[in-house]
Design a protein around this nucleic acid. Sequence first.
DNA 1: TTGTAAATGTAACAATAATCACATAATTAA
DNA 2: TTAATTATGTGATTATTGTTACATTTACAA
Lengths: 230, 230
Amino acid sequence: MTLNINKLHFESDKILSALSKIDKQEFLNSAKKLIFKKGKLVFYERGIPTGVFLIKRGRAKIYKTGLYGKDQIFYIYKRGDLFGYHALLCNEPYEDSCEALEDCEILFINKYEFNVLLQKIPHLKLLLIQNMSHEFGVLVNTITILAQKPLRERLALYLLLLNERYMDENTQEAAIDLSREDLANIIGTARESLGRLLKDFKEEELIHIEKRIIIIKNLKKLERIANSKH
Amino acid sequence: MTLNINKLHFESDKILSALSKIDKQEFLNSAKKLIFKKGKLVFYERGIPTGVFLIKRGRAKIYKTGLYGKDQIFYIYKRGDLFGYHALLCNEPYEDSCEALEDCEILFINKYEFNVLLQKIPHLKLLLIQNMSHEFGVLVNTITILAQKPLRERLALYLLLLNERYMDENTQEAAIDLSREDLANIIGTARESLGRLLKDFKEEELIHIEKRIIIIKNLKKLERIANSKH
DNA sequence: TTGTAAATGTAACAATAATCACATAATTAA
DNA sequence: TTAATTATGTGATTATTGTTACATTTACAA
């Protein structure tokens, strides 16, 4: 199981970017701009879906609240990502929650408009099918990693994934800006265990830490750790 | 997080059963019957998808091979379930493998025929979208359970799920017939740890064990364990 | 700016589950 | 049927990770 980081990416930006210029415009015309301040909920478990979302600025986490407030974070959405369509499409309440990690500018397309778009743009239906099929594979990989990889390898692997999620489009430099709590909830461990490991990684000069910000110094070595056969 | 077992079911039988009689016939007409002996691979990781599958008789597991042969099993498909369409629909190699747990009779619809069906039966496209949306929620729940629930609760929960998967359609009685290895690979633990827990469950009169077969004796109590807030 | 609350770091300790080593039982193939 | 292989059970030991308790730092709001 040599892990390709691609197999952990939802690629939720591909839906919109694959539309023709005209279809894309049609899509954007149906949207309404919303602002979510850092920490605000975009949607929440057991809530009834009312539409889909497209991030213009900022990042948001999707997660599931476990017992005693220990959340499980599945993914970090960023600029360009379309999300929130699963629960809408299967007519079920949300299974997960979404919270803004930073101040976010989000385009919202309501249920009715989205259905109209699905009718008007047949290609959109196909793109959704393709994307959800891909997501299935990603989640399957996530399960295997969380269930089988030891903590150290999981951390290395998710740092690589987050490196992409926090990459600046212009400078191509990444600074992972997450609370320790959130990072622990991504790799599925306790905050304290994460802290110990981060200290190790720092001492091994794999990462640089400045306050809460993590910058990757040695990508190759992290890849080797992420893929080691324990 | 009170867990509804429904939220762990793929409901892969709903796709075909939701089609009209005519569409269903059309679908079945495109199929070719295949026999897979117990232990045979239906498809495998990194293989190129060539079609979709529908189980008529028997059960099959989908899983991902981890490191050192420790597999992670995601689901047990049974009679009526349609599967194997994810990789086909996103044009990617299989992310997981599928193996017959018993002698299986499986209907196979090849890629070309399946695409024809998707064109001919618009409702099929919608049903796939709905089902994959639902599956997303299931996988998200699976991740949370594997990452957060202690072993004992995980075992209780999965026994309940398997109780449905191994329910006889006629007698409404279930006998879970899996190797200890497979069961361990479902709940994400070592074979030995599973064995010890099964012994506990047996002593607590929650289950009855006869050879490899597990029969649930006290469903209510298992539900309580599965949902306990550790 | 400054006080307050929230987030993070750290060390000792505990618990859970994995691993190892081997006995025993159950299948399977000759 | 019987030998051989595979699956399962069991106890001792170890490793990993979680928990607890508290110090320290950082962020935020008045």
